[in-house]
């Protein structure tokens, strides 16, 4: 399944809904979209992975890069993920200690 990207605004946060597979082929499109949001002046980004069924190390690298860019721009950056197969790769790589992870969009936008 190809990557799908859509944005919506929830409680003053821009939620980037990601679906499909985030891999070495599609991850650059995610990186580009996150960069566009930050460059456009968005100050609170939430990347919602609820409809992602596969993610590899390239996708993880893009999320870490997004966090860095957000911090440099003075914006907040959160990731919504409740799928166990994805949470497992965050834990294996210890990125659950780096990326602000939330179980739901409500939790991310309330922070």
């Amino acid at each position: 399944m190809e990557l799908s990207l859509a944005t919506r605004v929830v409680a003053a946060h821009t939620v980037l809904e990601v679906g499909g597979e985030v891999d070495v082929y599609t991850a650059p499109k995610l990186r580009e979209r996150i960069t566009e949001l930050l460059d456009s002046g968005v100050t609170a980004v939430v990347v919602d992975l609820a409809r992602v069924d596969f993610m590899d190390s390239t996708g993880l690298g893009v999320l870490v890069g997004g966090l860095r860019r957000a911090r440099a721009a003075g914006a907040t950056f959160g990731v919504v993920c409740s799928r166990e197969s994805l949470l497992k790769i965050f834990r294996i790589t210890a990125l659950d200690q780096v990326l602000p992870l939330y179980p739901s969009v409500d939790a991310a936008t309330a922070s």
Partner: peptide, 16 residues
């Protein structure tokens, strides 16, 4: 960012 991906990829492969 490429280095992050290289490191994360190596960690994943070794773990799984």
């Amino acid at each position: 960012e490429e280095q992050i991906t290289v490191d994360v990829s190596a960690s994943l492969l070794q773990a799984i």
